[in-house]
Design a protein around this nucleic acid. Structure first.
Lengths: 222, 222, 222, 222
DNA sequence: TATGAATGAGATTTCATTCAT
DNA sequence: TATGAATGAAATCTCATTCAT
């Protein structure tokens, strides 16, 4: 169908706002339909600007996708940075981080889905982005600090690898969003329902703490 | 791309073989490029038959994709069925199941990726497939049996939900394949390297056992 | 979708019956969807035989279509031949012929539609069929006889051309079927409803008689 | 058929002209070959634009066909609207309307054929078009006015239904074009020849007037 | 006489991108 | 900086017909 006949767009004349508008819509579109599945036409129609502007600002569909990916990682790391975990006891800090991750990922399915999309594309774009690698390297520092403090006070096993810890946390939280549709359909669970989320979140916290702590350390918690 | 100009194919006249050939290639193609990204032309070129046959047997790209998805689930459940876990003590059975899952999924990245693709498409196809739901319902029975036996002999906590258990196992195993590219790139790990797989596998086993078992039950294992 | 998986057809081994079966189905299919719109696959599926037989008996889609067309004309002329109009007074014979035509065409929409289809194709096939021309030439003889008798007895105008008469009868009867969908939709009439047919039929009879008869001849009839 | 290899088209950048150009060609193409028989490639080749533009403006083959159908009805009603029949005596007005219809339809075979095509498709598209229904509803008003004036002055029978009248006029005029090929072939008449048209036209006028007028009213005309 | 599998050619439709203003 | 019109290339899908048995 013709593109004409739609309500005329007000001209913004505000480059930064135009950029953000496009990015916002693009995140939704790529998250919903994937990289190949997303349609520039559809995307542009939801924007306050025109298709031409997408090319003006981002060069190509892939350029836009990369910008979306970077922005998505930037946001989660920024949010994570506000947690202030250093002042909590190690296991409390760990539990808080798990809860934050679980909640953030469930509240930001678009982020998860864009990461899935990137993996479907074999991480081709992330490999080119120095930005994203830098952003995420800090994530591990937080966990390393928790582990070190925990080992010193005897509440974390000495042989815990922070990257393993991060991987397990990510895996358990990520899955709840990433496989929501297949797993939910197969087992008849609504994995996005609030009560189910609250329940499952504590299972994840418990799983992580039990793994990180030595035999007797959790007597009061789990 | 036209089929002409290529050497004439020998005519199989063996429908079952033709079907299997197409399915085999399609699994690879959809796993590699996703549903929207896969190309029927490209796919057909890798078969012993022609593009036309894909439509003859599967009706449409989506029809083929659904057949691929069903076949993928059928295979993992079939393999799983050969495990014979009933004769192992509960925690050994659980460990064996986790190891199987981890190994199978890492050895069959195509299966994992096709499930990712299905989730990107909001489980639209799996919802239509009674076949897949039936196939997977048996998966949970195995775990329920392990839990019941474990609770009776005191090595599994009474409040363990088999679906939760399945979800955690799936999450931890799945992630290693699904997020291989992003996670691996960010943290500089080759998540497909044999040593790394062997190491990580035991982390997953330990994580699951520690969660399922009551406080003292693992003294000798972990 | 694959053609396999359908109920196996019983083998007839009766050539004439097979031919008739195909023709029957083909009339319906061509009438419903036109020549370009008809699908050999669809048609074959409704037959007791296979697609291959269609080619065996009729050579090609066009060959089958031509056979259908000839058969359709053969039938209306055969039915018309049973009318025995020679023994009726001229105007009664004329009225009877109009009523027969109106009823036959409304009861045999497939015939009308196949004639429409042939006209859409510029009469390309009918021009090749000596058979059809011969069949129809007799139709005019009946009218010529009525006119001659009518002129002699003073109930039909001397300057009535039998071909004109045939054309008007055909036009008025044909339209009720041929333009049923457009005219019916535009004017909100169900042109296939029994009461509407009965009513309209008499309008057509009256129209023809008033035109054929001289000024005073219809005093008692209309 | 690819668009490449042809001389580059001058870019119109005139959407209205592009639309009209496509519609013009499409009317011819659909009228000549029907909906299923028409070829988008063929059609595009006859335009000043490309195949792509057809989809840009009309969305699909069916969308284009519907636009063609609406345009065809719009034109005949527009032309009809210029007749100014209110100032003629009823029977003169009726005769003028019949002559206009006969001439218009014979001069615009494409219109007739597109209506035939629509009927072959069971009026599927016209049923969706509020536009077409509205356009045509005015056609009946003209006839109703003629009848009312005619009844008052005693030259039209009181029981004449305007829709019946419209149907008979349409049927007699339409047939001359719609069945030109079959009828013409069978009876060896060139139904498009000028003399034949002139002659037949008066037969139609006479048929309609004789039916609409009471017994004595036509003494001077027929 | 009969069949299910197979096919080449060509149909419709899609989509990222660029042009002219 | 902004836009609506336009496009080439390639994608998915269709269909009458034939082959091997």
């Amino acid at each position: 169908m013709s593109d004409s006949g739609r309500a005329p767009r007000p001209r913004t004349n505000n480059p930064e706002r135009t950029r953000r508008d496009i990015l916002e819509v693009a995140l939704r579109e790529f998250a919903t339909n994937g990289l190949s599945g997303a349609r520039i036409d559809e995307l542009a129609a939801q924007t306050r600007t025109s298709k031409r502007m997408i090319y003006y600002y981002f060069g190509s569909k892939e350029g836009l996708y990369l910008a979306v990916l970077e922005e998505a990682y930037r946001r989660i790391r920024a949010d994570e940075g506000t947690l202030d975990l250093q002042h909590l006891p190690p296991l409390d800090a760990l539990a808080a981080l798990v809860r934050f991750t679980f909640d953030y990922e469930n509240a930001n399915a678009d982020f998860i889905r864009v990461v899935m999309v990137e993996n479907i594309h074999h991480g081709r774009h992330i490999k080119q982005s120095e930005t994203i690698r830098q952003l995420n390297s800090t994530a591990i520092n937080v966990l390393r600090d928790i582990c070190e403090r925990g080992v010193r006070s005897g509440v974390v096993r000495a042989d815990v690898d922070p990257v393993d810890l991060h991987m397990s946390i990510s895996a358990l939280c990520f899955f709840n969003v990433s496989n929501r549709h297949t797993f939910g359909t197969i087992f008849g669970r609504d994995m996005a329902a609030p009560e189910e989320l609250a329940r499952r979140r504590e299972v994840v916290v418990e799983t992580i703490l039990r793994w990180a702590a030595p035999g007797g350390a959790l007597r009061d918690r789990c």
